[in-house]
């Protein structure tokens, strides 16, 4: 029986498979298909201090092996989350990571300060990389000083697991991972979506109301894998790999490149039971290949 567990800071994940923020809401709907008790954890839809309505339609466009989204961080806000969403989530035996998105460093800190008192919450993922909002989001994600300030500020108000979700829309992602590490962040998630767009040639208008959106799905996996590898080769910080995972082999690739855990994103839309099923497939791979402890594979890629 292979040990699939992963420990980051003081949080033990029973396996490395987490559900990515923005692809599973607050767990209400996905739990009809995926047994949350069998996965490593769930990362909530981004929370902001106040509710956000999100962008007008069209918010979604399918692309070759991927999709663009420009949801605009539609979310219920911290207060409503605590009242109606967290009690349900807390009923599952899994790790709950709250993703936080904000339009100022102060708002990130305030959200974290409020949520950190909840014992059901195991950690935070700070979203400095949403490409679909005007205020905040990527404006922070491609600014080293902003990421430094936000990481330090949030670190000061929580002792819980602190993950910063990094943008691929930067020249050197490892520089950002280093800043997170220096400011006391416990891990980085890599990557958020890539900025993309799509144009309707009949109307000559962008298909997305927001003009640009975030590209996700199998199309971005090679990019995500390269970013994980870049971070692993340059910074000592646990990495949560995200980007286009659509089969169990992808997960092994991410782990070999340097990921401790991974997140399943777009695939939840297509096969909402994928995360639960893929855990069993990874276990099968480990047993067939005599791998007693999965996390020994982290970073085990054989580089030239």
């Amino acid at each position: 029986m292979t040990d699939l567990s992963v420990k980051i800071k003081d949080v033990v994940f029973r396996n490395p498979v987490l559900l990515a923020s923005g692809t599973v809401g607050y767990g209400d709907e996905i739990s009809n298909f995926c047994d949350l008790n069998k996965i490593g954890g769930i990362v909530t839809k981004s929370l902001s201090l106040k509710p956000r309505k999100g962008n007008p339609p069209q918010r979604i466009v399918e692309t070759a092996s991927g999709m663009l989204n420009a949801i605009g961080l539609a979310n219920v806000g911290v207060e409503e989350f605590l009242k109606t969403k967290l009690p349900n989530l807390a009923g599952y035996d899994t790790n709950i990571i709250c993703n936080i998105a904000a339009s100022s460093p102060e708002e990130y800190i305030e959200c974290t300060r409020i949520l950190t008192t909840e014992s059901a919450i195991n950690g935070f993922e700070i979203n400095v990389s949403c490409p679909n909002v005007k205020d905040g989001g990527l404006e922070f994600g491609n600014n080293l000083d902003a990421v430094r300030r936000i990481t330090a500020g949030v670190r000061a108000v929580t002792d819980k697991l602190l993950i910063v979700k990094l943008s691929p829309n930067v020249a050197r992602i490892s520089d950002f991972a280093r800043v997170v590490s220096e400011e006391g962040g416990d891990a980085v998630s890599a990557i958020n979506t890539l900025v993309g767009t799509s144009i309707d040639i009949r109307t000559r208008k962008p298909k997305l109301f927001n003009v640009t959106g975030g590209l996700s799905g199998p199309a971005i996996k090679p990019v995500a894998l390269a970013k994980v590898l870049e971070i692993k080769r340059n910074v000592r910080i646990p990495i949560i790999g995200i980007g286009g995972i659509s089969k169990w082999e992808d997960i092994i690739e991410f782990i070999l490149a340097g990921a401790s855990c991974i997140q399943v994103g777009t695939m939840n839309f297509i096969s909402p039971d994928f995360a639960e099923k893929v855990v069993a497939e990874i276990a099968g791979y480990c047993e067939q290949n005599n791998i007693p402890v999965l996390n020994e594979l982290t970073g085990a890629v054989r580089l030239p």
Binding site: T23, E29, I30, G54, P56, P57, I60, E62
Partner: peptide, 21 residues
């Protein structure tokens, strides 16, 4: 246009008359 069909992608908004979102 929608991705999931059951509420997790938030991709298919319908705007409410009462201005609440």
């Amino acid at each position: 246009a929608m991705a999931c069909g059951f509420g997790i992608c938030q991709g298919c908004p319908a705007e409410l008359h009462d201005g609440s979102g």
